[in-house]
Design a protein around this nucleic acid. Structure first.
Length: 480
RNA sequence: UCCUCAGUAGCUCAGCUGGUUAGAGCACAUGACUGUUAAUCAUGGGGUCCCUGGUUCGAGCCCAGGCUGGGGAGCCA
């Protein structure tokens, strides 16, 4: 009788039944003793032990069962007599769907460095570590949709290709079909974009926020979740040229509503990951603890990965203004003993990573939300406070990551917005459609941007952002 | 882009003060063993010591330039 095929994850939850024949497909992790196959199909962190009775199978077949080979196995699920697994598959038939030359296959049943695995990005997903990471990434992505859908937010697709390059969120990638060897020029010697595909210059988006605001003026609560592109020459463990961003935008939300939403969302996503991927997290936690053990005691984090996630879930984020933060930093022993590379000497300076880290990791030892930054170090669209000096901005800072969320209450007053744009040389003509929202039924509204990969970094404990996206893009690198 | 550390076998690394034939573990191959959990034991093959140039009687080791990778900074999410 034809049975529906089970995944490894599913069959591991079945009760042993000596009568029922299952067919399982997957890839060999290890083959021990010419008898025991660890088979993985990526459906979960656990592998299925397949037992080949000695002498039952042809030797030439056994030689083809190598690390990485793809197999189709039918057999019966039995209780395992040995420790390590509760059930195992007693094989009746083994078919090699795809051979894997053990001498040439780069993945071995041993620990590899992340740097090496980065070079074989097409294969690294088959490892336990990257299996866990990308299953968690999947859970987090789905949790984001669940969170917003349950709250009545509309998922809107903002454009990937955009005409505006006015936002100042970062350097942009050009989108063109012009022949780069024969670029048409106008009389002034400039590139003649009227000959280009869109009849004007176009770029990849650096943010869906401005378009998101348009949608919020129609649907009240919206979110975007899509790829974003920044052509910055950033070479760090926290930056990518192509990354995914979540950007909710809410009409009638003030800054406090905005912060509440962001904090609730982060906790919801983390909670879902703990609930649904506990074994993946256990695995990454062990990995994390091993790495921590290598570090000198002074640099070790007081909590392990699981404790840290739990801690974030259980404690309210610390909220304070930029001005309060500056006071704390100025009065800190760190500052007095001149341990900061960039001394905190006056109100108005932009906070450096070391300052953010001090607040989050030393002073408060929990996530921090900083609000009301000086207007001069923030974007043009943030709402000006009564003091005329600060804006209704909020950044959420996470331990080990730094800024994970950046948001604000938006400047909804036409005159104020226009003035800020002029002060900051934002071309108002190009953003006529954005200004229109303030002319036609404007309203108080707020929103934020969450860097998805940074959140996945926090959840998985991975130190380098290039390890939490399947195919990272960064300066000099677009492989696969 | 800047600062910093590194590059030796497929992988992870050792290699003394510059000295003759460059090592280990894992992986791989062959054999033995057979209820293993990254199996174990034995044997074996495997090297452009990142590249170019220089110093030296002699360079994996010293010097200069470059390439590649890691970490940190800036920009930010």
């Amino acid at each position: 009788m034809l049975k529906p095929r089970l995944s490894v994850k599913e069959i591991l939850h079945q009760d042993p039944d000596p009568k029922q024949v299952h067919t399982i497909m997957g890839w060999v992790r290890t083959f021990r003793n010419n008898q025991f196959i660890s088979l993985s199909d990526g459906s979960g962190p656990d592998v299925l032990q397949v037992v080949l009775e000695l002498g039952k199978f042809d030797e030439n077949l056994l030689k083809r069962i190598t690390t990485g080979a793809c197999l189709k196995i039918s057999g019966k699920l039995v209780a395992s007599p040995a420790k390590g697994q509760s059930v195992e598959l007693l094989a009746d038939a083994v078919e090699v769907l795809g051979d894997c030359d053990a001498e040439k296959y780069p993945l071995q049943p041993k620990k590899h460095s992340l740097e090496f695995l980065r070079e074989i990005g097409h294969l690294r997903m088959r490892t336990q570590t990257f299996g866990a990471i990308f299953r968690l990434r999947n859970t987090a992505a789905f949790a984001i949709h669940k969170f917003f859908q349950e709250k009545g937010f509309l998922y809107i697709h903002t454009p990937i290709i955009t005409a505006s390059d006015a936002e100042g969120a970062g350097e942009m990638f050009r989108v063109t079909t012009l022949d780069l060897n024969h670029v048409p020029k106008n009389e002034a010697g400039e590139v003649d974009y009227s000959k280009d595909f869109f009849h004007r210059s176009a770029n990849l988006t650096v943010s869906g926020q401005l378009e998101g605001e348009l949608a919020a003026m129609a649907f009240s609560k919206i979110y975007t979740f899509g790829p974003t592109f920044r052509a910055e020459n950033s070479n760090t463990t926290r930056h990518l040229a192509e990354f995914w961003m979540i950007e909710p935008e809410m009409a009638f939300y003030d800054l406090e509503d905005n912060m509440n939403l962001a904090e609730e969302m982060l906790k919801y996503i983390i909670g879902e990951c703990i609930k649904q991927n506990d074994k993946d997290l256990d695995f990454l936690n062990k990995r994390w603890e091993e790495e921590e053990r290598q570090k000198p005691a002074a640099e070790r984090y007081p909590m392990n990965l699981l404790q840290r996630l739990q801690f974030v879930l259980e404690h309210p984020f610390e909220r304070l203004t930029y001005t309060q933060a500056i006071e704390i930093l100025q009065n800190s022993n760190y500052n007095k003993k001149k341990k900061f590379k960039y001394p905190v000497d006056r109100w108005g300076i932009d906070l450096q990573s070391e300052h953010e880290r001090y607040l989050v990791e030393k002073h408060f030892q929990k996530p921090v939300i900083l609000t009301d930054y000086p207007k001069d170090i923030k974007a043009f669209y943030m709402r000006l406070n009564e003091d005329g000096k600060t804006v209704r901005a909020m950044d959420i800072l996470f331990p080990g990551i730094g800024e994970i969320v950046g948001g604000s209450q938006r400047e909804e007053r036409y005159e104020y917005l226009l003035q800020r744009m002029r002060e900051m040389n934002i071309p108002e003509k190009e953003l006529w459609w954005y200004l229109d929202t303030r002319r036609f039924g404007t309203c108080p509204h707020s929103g934020f941007g969450l860097g998805f990969e940074r959140l996945v970094q926090f959840i998985t404990g991975m130190g380098n952002i290039r390890d939490v996206i399947p195919f990272p893009r960064f300066p000099g690198h677009v492989e696969f």
